[in-house]
Design a protein around this nucleic acid. Structure first.
Length: 598
RNA sequence: GCCCCUGUGGAGCAGCCAGGAGUGCUCAUCUCCCUGUCAAGGAGAAGGUCGCCGGUUCAAAUCCGGUCAGGGGCGCCA
């Protein structure tokens, strides 16, 4: 037996007992005749004392210890002398008086300090991920991740769901995100794709009569990375039969509440519900952060007949003029304001009109072009008062106005500290919002056509189908998202279970019936044999854990994540492969070997 | 593909705007001292091609151009 206890578990009740501990030298304080070692293992840290008075041999041996040595210590637990208790660690009332020391393995000086809370360069952390994972932050995050996933499994088990694994090697799908492809050795020129999601498989499990399925499923998408996007990520994949929208929302909401209650100790209230159109209108996005106001205000009525041509012409072209009001920023310098204009332009706006409400009146680049009534109406409609700054965006595309203001809203709220500082134990810290009533199509301005907003299996609200020809934007889908504090956490829908409707949707997507047969024939075939109405949802585990952990990047809750350029700095993936490996896969690369980017 | 930020002994920073000797701080490392620390303390030492390439200049960490790496974002992500 290498150890009798774990370092972090020792308490005053263990006093007097001889224990054997294993762990890493977290830090060392050498006072000459007495040397303290903070010994760290998976459970925590405990102070070990080496002293000439306790055991001269062990004390001498401890002189050779260095940070991150992996050691075994035998000693007697004792309560610390009065006045030397460390209140900041759970084991702080005790210490281990060491009688023997065995170095299990020595350690070179690490490239960064494990015991320091300092931020360390990301690339260094990723290259030495196994050392970064020793640090408290990632240890805590991985444990939290485990606790959340364990709670999820308990919840769905109790609800009668069956966890089923679906294939990792599947058929490529040209639409949607780019696939990661896997060449087939046995079928020259053919490829598997790694799943972007188990979408079709879970629908087939419903056809199969599983009734209620879930899976902690790894998904891969070959798209560019973001703080909340890795090339491979984990979804809680859920599908249910004989359900409509409300049933899925109910079980999902209860799942989140269960997890927050069990893991976070927080009793969440009912989730807010926002129709997609309202969310975009008020917050400029379909993933609104509703922890603060600064909502978008429509100034259209103010400027319909304005002398200010930039504003009026946007409206005349069928666009919009909207604004957000930043409380107390009216004193912003010209330099700051110019920077805001640049920022808006980078986000895609033609420009940005700012208007500061001051004691003397409106300070605004368009001031000369605005009548007194207009100014008053502007301030009033923007909900501004003295000292506030109104940021106005006008564009012939209403969608662009919403997008730019929505992005500015969240950025500036962060920058100017407009998001209330709440405690994670406070339910108000977690503003879950259901986004419902998504449009089935969205207008593609560049291509001048209507595109599907979702995957081609998404159900439609039948009553809105009449608008299909007249006003496609009014056709609503049976899709729904969960957002939390500005992050999209989950996305789902009731699916089409009618074979003919499914074929019509493929046709509407521009997929010919031959093509549909070729690519999704298995699904259409399955739909010949009695399909239950079904639907589901897929919450992103990485994002859930990141938010729960208070992290702003999902790398912090993934054991071995990739860089923004999709590389693993520790293993060096992706890498070139041997010519022989390509050979058996019937592959040849168009990239000359010397240009291969490792 | 595009925009922005960052890159300075092993780690974290300052220095850069306004060019003048690799200057400074905290931690780590090495040697020595030290019996109650927990950010231990004290004395000393070692450690750098200022990411890389080029340009401007009498002179570049500092200014300019390019490039690489990491990060944030736009596009992309049905």
């Amino acid at each position: 037996m290498m150890r009798t206890h774990r370092c972090g578990d020792l308490r005053p009740e263990h006093a007097g007992r001889e224990v054997t501990l294993c762990g890493w030298v977290h830090s060392r304080r050498d006072h000459g005749g007495v040397t303290f070692i903070d010994l760290r293992d998976t459970a925590g840290i405990v102070q070990v004392v080496f002293s000439v008075d306790i055991d001269a041999g062990a004390h001498a041996a401890a002189q050779g210890l260095r940070s991150e040595y992996c050691v075994q210590v035998v000693g007697r637990v004792r309560e610390r002398p009065a006045g030397t208790v460390n209140e900041r660690i759970p084991t702080g009332a005790v210490e281990v008086a060491a009688s023997s020391l065995r170095v299990l393995s020595e350690a070179e000086t690490p490239p960064f300090q494990i015991d320091s809370p300092h931020e360390v360069d990301e690339s260094l952390r990723l290259r030495y991920r196994y050392l970064d994972l020793r640090r408290a932050r990632l240890q805590d995050n991985l444990r939290l991740r485990h606790a959340i996933i364990a709670a999820i499994r308990r919840f769905f088990d109790a609800e009668g769901f069956v966890e089923v694994e679906t294939p990792m090697l599947m058929r490529a799908t040209p639409e949607g995100a780019r696939d990661y492809l896997v060449p087939s050795r046995l079928h020259p020129g053919c490829f598997y794709a790694l799943p972007q999601s188990p979408q079709t498989f879970k629908q087939l499990l419903m056809v199969a009569g599983l009734d209620r399925y879930y899976q902690i499923a790894r998904c891969m998408r070959d798209e560019d990375l973001r703080a909340d996007r890795q090339p491979e990520f984990t979804q809680l994949d859920v599908e249910m039969s004989f359900v409509d929208v409300e049933d899925v929302l109910d079980v999902t909401e209860r799942c989140f509440k269960y997890v927050w209650r069990e893991v976070m100790g927080v009793e969440l209230g009912p989730f807010l519900r926002l129709p997609y159109a309202e969310s975009v209108e008020r917050f400029g996005t379909d993933k609104p952060d509703v922890r603060f106001g600064v909502e978008l205000q429509d100034l259209g009525p103010v400027f319909a007949a304005s002398e200010a041509k930039v504003l009026r012409s946007a409206l005349e072209d069928g666009g919009a003029v909207k604004a957000i009001t930043l409380p107390g920023r009216g004193s912003a310098s010209r330099k700051e304001l110019d920077a805001l204009v640049d920022e808006a332009k980078r986000l895609g706006a033609g420009g940005l009109v700012w208007a500061a409400v001051t004691q003397e009146g409106l300070r605004c680049p368009l001031e000369r072009h605005l009548g007194e009534d207009e100014k008053r109406a502007l301030v009033q409609r923007a909900g501004a008062s003295e000292g506030d700054l109104v940021l106005i965006v006008a564009d012939r595309s209403r969608a662009r106005v919403d997008k730019v203001l929505g992005a500015l809203r969240t950025r500036l709220a962060e920058r100017y500290g407009l998001i209330p500082e709440t405690d994670p134990s406070d339910p108000a810290h977690w503003r879950f919002v259901w986004i419902v009533d998504f449009p089935w199509f969205e207008y593609n301005e560049d291509a001048g056509r209507w595109d599907f907003s979702h995957h081609p299996f998404t159900g439609v609200v039948e009553e809105t189908l009449d608008n299909l020809e007249s006003d496609p934007g009014k056709v609503l889908s049976k899709a729904y998202d969960i957002t939390l504090n500005g992050w999209e956490l989950a996305s789902g829908s009731i699916r089409i279970h009618d074979r003919e409707l499914q074929k019509r949707v493929f046709a509407a997507l521009g997929i010919s019936s031959d093509e549909a047969e070729e690519r999704f024939g298995f699904l259409l075939d399955a739909f010949r044999y009695g399909v239950p109405p079904h639907g589901g949802i897929a919450p992103g585990i990485d994002r859930i854990v990141a938010l729960a952990a208070g992290e702003t990047n999902i790398r912090e809750v993934i054991a071995f994540p990739k860089t923004q350029s999709a590389q693993d700095l520790m293993t060096g993936a992706p890498s070139p492969v041997d010519a022989e490996q390509l050979e058996v896969l019937h592959l040849r690369t168009t990239v000359p070997l010397e240009e291969t980017e490792a």
